[in-house]
Design a protein around this nucleic acid. Structure first.
Length: 440
RNA sequence: GUGCCUAUAGUUUAGUGGUAAAACUCCAGUUUGUGGCACUGGCGUCGAGGGUUCAAUUCCCUCUAGGCACCCCA
């Protein structure tokens, strides 16, 4: 393309940006924040209640961390990362997920020297340069759970799953299915992969182009193909569950037994493979069922005993999972879960006239110091407009201060519900309001 | 990253090759210190840029954003 044409296009692109968020990035407006807060609060309270400790890492890490951790061959690293160069020449990436950063922190701060395992949770933004859709954004907020260190015990996998199960339950999300699988370990997975490749090779010419590629680069993903022409091969493909080594089999059995014990229903799904390289053994996903956009993964995770090693650390057992606030919110809205309500304010301050306006901030501050939350619309000067605003906001008590009251050092307390009002001495105002609020 | 669909007030939607309409919301007012109802008025460069045309919100192109499918995932 000629240079000036290219520049022209670039300029046009810049002009169209205008006043809007970049693609896939959303403002959380006050109305949505009620949802947002409900979900993040539930996640946080539950995590603390389950004795997880909060660990927050920076939104940026060295690119290498994700190449080594998440995996250089994964879609996330290959196509979906925001990569930037700093002035000093470092190559950083906005985090596309939490886990590698958490593992890095675990090593950097020697958390292995604290009680094991470390149960850690994080809540914060992650970034993926993906094509957005409803419930899928380029910046979204993950709730991330990790159990790192200690024994390679299936009970930890179960504990992570129990957390998400409870969270989904508390948020009243319906039609959720838990899918479970094991993708084996260093011993049995390579054997299975080879077997899968051998099986698929016979049909190579009949496979879709993606699957031909997968056959070489990432055979487990063959099981994920949704193209019609590949379905019949998928159905007859060897199942990994039959090929697991003895210790992987008993590990999976362990996880499932704990889930049974808890009465948590699941579907064994030998086609469930996850997009990240570091998983081993347990993988799980919570799915919502339904038509179209209501269906999809709302939480997922698994075990990653080799991750620490590929980052250059000592082999450390670890398991975890994540979900996103935005996705949960999307599902809740589509399932018509009742929107959270903000508690209405009870007390509203109204001034009449310049003198009263001048004194208003001070009186309001006195009330606030006494622990009484006071709403107002001091920028409006007409009494009518102020009352109207109070009414619209569902206020119970209006405090009206005018010339006369100012002179008498009193104030009118008007109950907007029954339109009864009385004049109260300013010095007794706090007491009077408390009495009325208590009486409700 | 690829393909398809969409874009009109804050919201939901009309509409037209001659610079726009309704409902709800919002703001102001219907006189002098009292809200809900009613009435009157106000708020739009018809997503952005360019082209065709005497004239473009309307037709064409590009960009941007949103949605859907693929890919992948939360």
């Amino acid at each position: 393309m000629p240079k000036n044409k290219k520049n022209k296009e670039k300029k046009r692109k810049e002009e169209s940006h205008g006043l809007q968020t970049p693609k896939g990035m959303h403002d959380v407006l006050p109305a949505d924040y009620l949802w947002w807060e409900k979900i993040s609060k539930a996640a946080k309270d539950l995590a603390e209640f389950y004795c997880f400790n909060r660990l927050d890492t920076p939104v940026m890490e060295f690119l290498k961390l994700y190449e080594k951790g998440t995996g250089a061959d994964t879609d996330i690293v290959q196509k979906e990362m925001y990569i930037l160069k700093t002035k000093s020449g470092d190559t950083l990436a906005l985090r596309p997920e939490f886990t590698p950063g958490i593992m890095r922190a675990y090593v950097q701060h020697s958390l292995s020297r604290l009680g094991q395992p470390q149960k850690l949770y994080s809540i914060g933004p992650v970034f993926r340069h993906d094509n957005p859709q409803a419930g899928r954004l380029r910046q979204f907020t993950q709730i991330n759970m990790e159990v790192i260190g200690g024994q390679n015990d299936p009970i930890y996998d179960a504990q992570v799953i129990i957390y998400f199960n409870r969270l989904i339950d508390e948020l009243k999300i319906k039609n959720v299915v838990l899918r479970m699988n094991s993708i084996g370990c260093k011993v049995c997975r390579p054997l299975y992969k080879r077997q899968l490749q051998n099986y698929y090779k016979n049909f190579e010419k009949k496979l879709c182009s993606d699957c031909v590629r997968r056959l070489k680069t990432n055979p487990l993903r063959l099981l994920d193909c949704k193209k019609e022409e590949c379905q019949e091969f998928k159905a007859k493909a060897p199942s990994i569950l039959d090929k697991l080594c003895a210790s992987c089999t008993s590990h999976l059995k362990g996880v499932l037994e704990y889930l049974d014990e808890m009465g948590i229903a699941y579907q064994l799904d030998n086609l469930l493979v996850r997009g990240l390289d570091y998983y081993s053994r347990t993988v799980f996903e919570f799915f919502t069922e339904g038509n179209g956009s209501e269906a999809g993964a709302i939480a997922g995770g698994g075990r990653y005993d080799y991750l620490m090693e590929s980052l250059g650390g000592r082999v450390t057992p670890a398991t975890g999972g994540a979900c996103s606030i935005e996705r949960l919110m999307y599902v809740m809205k589509s399932q018509e879960v009742k929107p959270p309500q903000k508690l209405p304010k009870k007390v509203f301050f109204i001034h009449v006239g310049e003198m009263a306006k001048k004194k208003s901030l001070r009186i309001i501050e006195t009330l606030r110091s006494a622990g009484i939350s006071v709403a107002e619309s001091l920028g409006r000067d007409s009494l009518k407009a102020q009352l109207k605003t109070a009414d619209k906001e569902g206020i119970d008590l209006a405090l009206i201060l005018g010339q006369r009251e100012l002179f008498e050092e009193s104030i009118i307390v008007r109950d907007l519900r029954n339109s009864l009002q009385e004049t109260v001495t300013l010095s007794k105002l706090v007491e009077e309001i408390r009495k009325r609020l208590r009486a409700q």
